[in-house]
């Protein structure tokens, strides 16, 4: 979300058949609907609340990764999916919200004392909560009107917080598991790759500012 939304005259590159953005939301919410449907029908295994909680969190991370993949896809492979980035980012936010609500309501039963103690005492909850808090202003300023009001540069600066959110999300995942199972490490590697790419790319740009077309 760090870059300006589709600048006029930007390199179009390889163009995929365009689908309506509403379809991205439609498909994006399929896992949530499917999970709730299975949950209501008692088909999420022995510990359905925990399964739902974890699955929603994982989908939030996946959509966050999809959002971060848009820029490298465009720059490295000339695949331009920029017009879907807002939808993917918002899906990450909605899944994070559902994940949080599952924790607050189904897991903790809105026991505010227990939730407060968790946030203060447990690093993985502290980090998870902070990650969600970071996503809130990004979701609130996701409209065209907000971009106009803030101005492109300020908007882009604010939306660089998505990098912090991605780091927070994988840390939250790694800290919650016992030992070092492969899955959270794989997600951490993907996020490291996506953020590392940006770092290398921006350093390269600073070193040779006029090399690539605007």
């Amino acid at each position: 979300m760090a870059e300006r939304a589709a600048a006029p005259g930007a390199r179009k590159g390889f163009s995929l058949p365009q689908v309506p953005k509403i379809l991205v939301y439609g498909v994006g919410f399929v896992p949530a609907v499917w999970l709730f449907y299975q949950g209501i029908n008692d088909r999420l295994g022995a510990d359905p609340m925990r399964y739902l909680e974890q699955a929603l969190g994982l989908w939030a991370l996946r959509f966050l990764i999809a959002t971060l993949a848009i820029t490298p896809l465009r720059q490295l492979f000339a695949v331009n999916l920029l017009r879907y980035r807002r939808a993917l980012g918002l899906l990450a936010f909605y899944y994070a919200l559902l994940h949080l609500l599952t924790y607050l309501v189904l897991d903790q039963g809105l026991d505010l004392a227990a939730i407060g103690a968790d946030i203060v005492k447990r690093p993985y909850i502290t980090i998870g909560m902070a990650t969600f808090v970071i996503l809130v202003p990004l979701a609130l300023t996701s409209t065209n009107a907000a971009i106009r009001r803030m101005g492109g540069q300020a908007w882009a600066r604010l939306h660089r917080l998505v990098y912090v959110a991605a780091i927070g999300a994988v840390l939250h995942f790694i800290l919650v598991v016992k030992s070092w199972p492969p899955e959270p490490l794989v997600y951490a590697a993907i996020v490291t790759g996506l953020l590392g790419y940006r770092l290398v790319h921006s350093l390269g740009r600073k070193a040779a500012p006029r090399r690539r077309p605007a």
């Binding site: 022995a46 359905p48 039963g109 026991d111 227990a114 968790d118 447990r122």
Partner: peptide, 20 residues
């Protein structure tokens, strides 16, 4: 160190709406 041990969820009790 990473979570409270004060409460527990009894597996198979209450489905999605299990009470600690």
């Amino acid at each position: 160190p990473r979570w409270s041990q004060a409460t527990e969820r009894r597996i198979g009790e209450g489905g999605l709406f299990v009470k600690r």
